[in-house]
Write a protein that binds this DNA or RNA. Structure first.
Lengths: 195, 195, 195, 195
DNA sequence: TATGAATGAGACTTCATTCAT
DNA sequence: GATGAATGAAGTCTCATTCAT
């Protein structure tokens, strides 16, 4: 017999995979159960509700994400190095939690309206503060261009990184670090050939 | 009062707005009807089904998108100018069809599996051919960097542009052309200050 | 412009055809209107309701049927001749009112439960009295066999005649009189060859 | 309590009873559920749809019917004995599956148009081949009269038998075999007294 | 007379959830 | 831990009917 917390994790992984592929609303609890080789009702021995599944998936992911981010932000790096470290850390998270990230991308905005998922909005705020702050510091310190709308830049960098979760497949050609390197190269230096 | 095709368009605009805000599955037909000031059943005088609404929204949008793209692609521009024109055209579409674009982003992958929405997959293929081809041409002609994974670059540019639909609000600070200009500047030349 | 009562009759004929083919419940008012070249709502200028249509179809048919039957029954014929005349008259009605007869066969039992259609039950009673009475008279007078359950015989003769409405097509190989002749021959003398 | 396949059969029996009494279209799924002592939605644990219920009712009935018919047809009996055996078998089926037979009578023609119910048309064809063939053989062999339209005779015999399902009540005065005997006597020898 | 648009009741169906075994 | 069966709320859709034009 697999012990309880192990089984939970397995089931959540299954659920996350299905949520990511089909969307939360379009996913039936029965579909998850099928995938896990049990009947729909049996899931309720492990979880309170369908909502508590996505809740646990998202909060677990965000906890881990912020552990990594906080370490980077506390390291006292320069703006460019901070951005590089955050991007790299982000792609590592995508590698580890791809389904959770995909779910986060698609469902976060709607869920954040419910009190239960207030932490999503909080995270969003912290997130913006971290990235936007670093970019602004970079402009001030003359590392980043000052002729761009800074909020546009923020969204550009943010989206650039996270949307990758929609196509990324672990075990592909590139390691997360390699992808991070190329993305950073594009974001920082552009794709046009310097003449 | 309002003539028939006009009413259809109004109702589709309403539906698109709600679909974009809540997601297709989370949107009830009653919600759309409420928004339109009628009863749920009344919608079925105008449309066959909820599905046919999203179908018409997406196909109308894609038709218009490809009209613009095809014009650009037929103009015989150089790779860099083609990319610039495609990006600008894309932001114009986002400006005109923001809800449709947002729906496309969120629901496209799941819908494409259904035969009825096969055109979504077709469009995806054409899309990739146009962008990827232009990028490859650019590398060959020495306009774009050749040290990047070209598929990664394609996804980078593609996502960067279209995710904008999730935060873009028409009538905001920047015109679509201005946003396009800044995006292109970031994508082509990077956000780092040249030294 | 066609005068009102004429148009009514046309519309009822159309409705009867559709009711007979699809069943009353399975027939939508819109289908009838389509067939008549108008919109569903327009039918309500001519009729109060869908129910009033089937009502008028059935009562018109029964009125005419009983006109014929009453004449036969008042003619003072012998039992065998009465049966022959009733059967012949019945096939004539099927020829003239095929859809109405088919509807009567399929819907009568359910409708008869409603007060509005009480006349259906009345007709049924009169019908049974006429046929069963004639058969009994025939047994008494030594014209019909006395070794058969008389109610079974009644049902046999009744069903034999009326079910024909389900396959009969006016303008086919046989005239109603010819069909009546053959049916009577079978019912009275059997299909086995006498030895 | 009751094991699964048993429950299915019970529910189908309930549904068949209601379909036969009210007609398929006029029967609500809620009515069936009421009759079965459960809520409407609960039926969907056992069946895919209302349509799949009538499908299973009809196909089960036809399967059993053809088992009996095929046995008779394979027995190598003479035409008259074959007809006798088919009629007797038919009344036994009516006795066992009265609601299914009644449903078949009322709904078959409309349903047969749908691909899902193609087997109804197939059965109809096989049915005609069996009966018409036997009658023709009887005429050739001099057992049945040759002065009748054979197709008319076929319809006469066919309808005569099956319409009985509309009034037959199991456990009544006559056993199916007794009814078959009297019907055959009427069909073969007629109801007129021989002189 | 007929149209176009809508109403409102009610149908079939889905699905998260519960619970005795 | 899991099953089988059910609940009940809610969702999509149908359709007879109404009514201003």
């Amino acid at each position: 017999m697999t012990p309880t917390p192990e089984r939970r994790r397995e089931l959540l992984a299954t659920a996350a995979e299905v949520f990511a592929a089909q969307g939360y609303n379009a996913t039936t609890v029965r579909r998850i159960a099928d995938e896990a080789g049990m009947l729909a009702g049996s899931l309720y021995y492990h979880f309170d509700s369908k909502e508590s599944m996505i809740d646990e998936i998202l909060s677990t992911f965000l906890d881990e994400l912020w552990q990594g981010y906080d370490e980077v932000l506390a390291a006292g790096l320069g703006p460019r190095e901070t951005i590089e470290a955050l991007v790299t850390e982000s792609f590592r998270e995508i590698d580890r939690h791809r389904p959770a990230v995909a779910i986060y991308q698609k469902e976060s905005r709607r869920l954040a309206a419910q009190p239960r998922f207030a932490y999503l909005a909080d995270s969003q705020t912290k997130f913006e503060k971290a990235w936007l702050g670093t970019l602004e510091r970079g402009v001030t310190e003359g590392v980043f261009r000052d002729d761009l709308d800074i909020r546009l830049t923020y969204r550009f960098v943010r989206d650039t990184v996270w949307v990758a979760a929609s196509w990324y497949r672990p075990g592909g050609h590139h390691s997360p670090e390699e992808i991070a390197r190329q993305y950073l190269s594009m974001v920082l230096d552009g794709i046009a050939l310097r003449t």
